[in-house]
């Protein structure tokens, strides 16, 4: 589903290279965890996948379902099924969460040449998905992310993911700022979306989240490269020993 080949990328503004020859393949149905120390390029990778313009790809390619997506802008990539759950979801004052959801769902449908959802159909879907994530209807009336607690923000991200039904889900540090109960709800939401035709990339600093979203593969990112790959036991190893050994081996 996702194939990253020898990717090099830098910050557009000052030319700082962040991704330096990254290779990664994630198959449909797979849950891949990306781990690594601070500053290894984890969040940058999520932005580059989703098409943020602050970064420039200088070499290599990103294939999604066999096609390069480098020429597509962020909204086109989203409409084709790439979803990023943000580490820090952004506040949109004055725009009710429900209204935002409706606009997003219908814009994606429009891009794909589908009819807009009728209001009753939209309401039915939102109600169902919100209930699964224990989101109160009152929260849907509030402006998106404005005054939401850390847990509410992350649940709102997962709600959007559930409604937009993406094919490639990228979760950027979704566990940050969550207490254990919220973490479980979020993880349940993600697990409910696991399916043979969907891939999930979980970016995380800690093993903790991976106890709830169990990955098929684990990749260690360091200085903009994947320096080691393995199965879920690699995550436990990292938790116990830290990154030092792997970094040393890579250097």
């Amino acid at each position: 589903m996702l194939e990253i080949k020898n990717l090099h990328a830098r910050i557009a503004e000052d030319g700082t290279e962040i991704i330096r020859g990254l290779d990664l393949t994630v198959k449909a149905g797979e849950v891949a965890a990306i781990m690594g120390p601070n500053g290894s390029g984890k969040s940058t990778l999520s932005y580059i996948l989703s098409g943020r313009e602050d970064y420039e790809v200088t070499e290599g390619d990103i294939l999604y379902n066999g096609e390069s997506i480098l020429e597509l802008d962020a909204s086109e990539r989203a409409a084709k099924g790439i979803f990023l759950a943000f580490q820090y979801p952004v506040e949109i004052p004055g725009v009710a969460t429900r209204q935002f959801l409706k606009v997003a769902m219908n814009e994606q449908r429009k891009y794909r040449g589908e009819d807009e959802l009728t209001t009753p159909e939209f309401m039915r879907r939102v109600k169902e998905a919100a209930a699964e994530l224990k989101i109160a209807p009152e929260m849907l009336r509030r402006p998106l992310n404005v005054g939401f607690s850390g847990g509410e923000k992350k649940r709102a991200e997962i709600l959007q993911m559930a409604l937009l039904q993406p094919k490639l889900c990228v979760l950027d540090e979704t566990d940050s700022g969550l207490d254990i109960d919220a973490l479980k709800i979020v993880a349940d939401g993600v697990n409910a979306l696991r399916s043979p035709d969907r891939a999930v990339v979980v970016i995380t600093h800690y093993q903790r989240l991976l106890d709830y979203i169990v990955p098929d593969t684990v990749h260690v990112l360091y200085k903009g490269q994947v320096v080691k790959s393995g199965d879920k036991t690699l995550a436990h190893e990292l938790e116990a020993k830290g990154y030092a050994d792997i970094i040393e081996a890579a250097a």
């Binding site: 098409g51 909204s75 979803f83 952004v90 997003a104």
Partner: peptide, 9 residues
């Protein structure tokens, strides 16, 4: 960017 990422042009 947040809006774009949700598919809103």
């Amino acid at each position: 960017f947040y809006c774009l990422q949700r598919g809103i042009p």
